[in-house]
Design a protein around this nucleic acid. Sequence first.
DNA 1: CTAGACGTTGACGTCGGCGTCAAGGCAAGG
DNA 2: CCTTGCCTTGACGCCGACGTCAACGTCTAG
Lengths: 132, 132
Amino acid sequence: MLIGELAQLAGTSTRTLRYYEAHGLVRPQRSANGYRVYDEAELRVVREIRSLIAVGFSLDDIRPFVACLRAGHTSGAVCPDAVAVLRHKIAEVNGCIEQLDAVRRRLHAQLDEAVTSRGCAAARSDGGLSHH
Amino acid sequence: MLIGELAQLAGTSTRTLRYYEAHGLVRPQRSANGYRVYDEAELRVVREIRSLIAVGFSLDDIRPFVACLRAGHTSGAVCPDAVAVLRHKIAEVNGCIEQLDAVRRRLHAQLDEAVTSRGCAAARSDGGLSHH
DNA sequence: CTAGACGTTGACGTCGGCGTCAAGGCAAGG
DNA sequence: CCTTGCCTTGACGCCGACGTCAACGTCTAG
């Protein structure tokens, strides 16, 4: 299949597919006229990439998964390198969640304080709007 | 005080302070020779900006907080606009956490599957999951 | 023959929050 | 006077995953 068809099947754009190729993730054949030609395996590769991108992986993170598929495995996650990335990413996500949770608590604290002290933290003495 | 001193006191760079000014968040006076001159109030403003940046707010998000301080309030979070941003951001953070949690579960599932089927999903052998 | 629907490469634009020069002005000490 | 060290404005660089043109080649239907 040609690049337009693959883009449709994979739910992405031709630009994106060329971008992946430029970064060594997808490797189409070339027909006589110079057109990129993809097979089913490449479709699977692209779908793997897309689903990993969707969960926030970078292209570098994804590389081992593609290599794994390309090695003939039915899943991109069964090879050691990919598993390592998975573990690393899970830890990263956990750290992210912790940080966000801390942020959430801080924001809640600020909000509570703001609501509680409504009017108390008003400007310059006499409860008016006499600024400066 | 001049821009270098403020940068030190606020734990940031002069570049950053000029950037904030270019975006209307900080408003220094000018001395006769054209140097930026900041007072204590501006220091407080910059510190407010920095702490909100630290929790992931954009400069646009921060604008109402600065306005609130500038209106004479002791906290940047007591004004309606700022409170609205706070609520919105808390919701955003909650959404983020939910998404990350979903991602975490998906990654765990992938990892479990990868570990469980170790060797079973091996390469180019016809003896496996001909699924797909 | 021509239109138009595909394909090709190349290159610049996007978004935010700055970092990092470049080229010059102003103040003060040796 | 010269150096040092602060200040000024202006402008390009960066990161990632693409979007969007431009200018051109290729294939097919009418």
